[in-house]
Design a protein around this nucleic acid. Sequence first.
DNA 1: ACGGTTCAGTGAACGGTGTTTACAAAGTTG
DNA 2: CAACTTTGTAAACACCGTTCACTGAACCGT
Lengths: 237, 237
Amino acid sequence: MTEATRRERLRAETEREIRQAARTLLVTQGREAVTLRAIARELGITAPALYRYYNSHEDLLRQLCDDICQDMSHELYKDIADLGEDQVRDQVRAVCHAFRRWALAHPQEFSLVFASPQDALGPKPDQFGSVFLEVAARLIASHPAPEQEHADVPSTLHGDLASFQEVLIQAVASHGCEVSAAELSLGAIYHIVQSWVRLYGHVALEVFGRFPFAVANPEPMFDRMIDQMLTDIGFGD
Amino acid sequence: MTEATRRERLRAETEREIRQAARTLLVTQGREAVTLRAIARELGITAPALYRYYNSHEDLLRQLCDDICQDMSHELYKDIADLGEDQVRDQVRAVCHAFRRWALAHPQEFSLVFASPQDALGPKPDQFGSVFLEVAARLIASHPAPEQEHADVPSTLHGDLASFQEVLIQAVASHGCEVSAAELSLGAIYHIVQSWVRLYGHVALEVFGRFPFAVANPEPMFDRMIDQMLTDIGFGD
DNA sequence: ACGGTTCAGTGAACGGTGTTTACAAAGTTG
DNA sequence: CAACTTTGTAAACACCGTTCACTGAACCGT
């Protein structure tokens, strides 16, 4: 059967139950309610027992953030799975809409992930925009005409963009698309990052209710922005 | 002298001292350290005394947010005060850079203001992007050629944009610039909002350390984005 | 099958938190 | 001076994260 011993299986099980309880508390009662004692109460154990699984309350929240990001990532990929391999532009559109929809449907999770400082975290650098960035990179790479040159991106950024280029190429490759550095120029990378800035800016403003004026229905504005983004990248319809 | 009685002056004084202490704690030791007892300790009083001034801890934090926004607003206006009345494009550039600089220099304040949900707040709808929005509106209105039409903005948004148009016209007017609705078209308003989305997106990502890749020096990227923004609005050099 | 070891969980305790309540001591006002 | 308002205190409550000594059960090598 499974390689793990019985003990390890039980441990992994309750570990999952703990985070599930924490997640439920977060969603139903907000971040403040995610307390060690409340979680333990939910599982029918006492608070100190949780220290067998997590070093601290902060540690638990950190791992909860990882869970959330992973779930969102899976959901986003699920939303573009139905689309054909060749409809990459539709995939970009879909992933943008899915990201907004997820954030609006899970404001507490979205806030928690963003409120937590990225500083003293593990080796994972991003894990939030990665899905969008991968799909967008696939779109540009798969397009036959990479007319974008890296003439208009400041030379100071070439180093950073080049290292990110490698990361993106590897990310795309892990989805079965082999691309070369030539197909994914530095200019293209730059446009992708700029698109992520806009996408994130809109969604964050909307989720946090910080739009400069009361928007009755932000959806058409979002649609319009996605169109503009695609046009700027060079994929206007 | 002042209209207020002696008691009212004393009250206002300690009220200011309380928020000053809270602010210092926030900056030096982070949000978690802004506790009622810590604030009281700083003033040499006890925690329950603070309830004579604020209804709750949450209420105090809310008002602290207001303080922060107001301070930032003043600082931003101070940064563009040196520029001539007619150099409005430079003013936009300056206010963008000032916003980024302020956010990077005050990450704790920036995070606190954004982490706090906007929902159950007072009558103030925004108070964060207002400075940028006002200056940007002034730029467009002062420009002789308002070639932007509202043909390319979704008709669904006309209502929301029109109401925001009024707000902006009033905001610009309060700075001595009378403009008509014709000089500040709906298309222009839309571009201003889009610019704010990008500006906020970049700054938030940078402050929260959530850029998709390690950027050694984000400043040239920011400069490049501001250029692009101005070009999109119709003010490329 | 037994004995030692590992491990999950408990209960009590410590210092800290927001908040309420009853009360004292000032300041203000008639 | 007396009545009243305002400001602060001390004690208490329930809750929080965290530590520690301890129990009991599961595991493992012999």
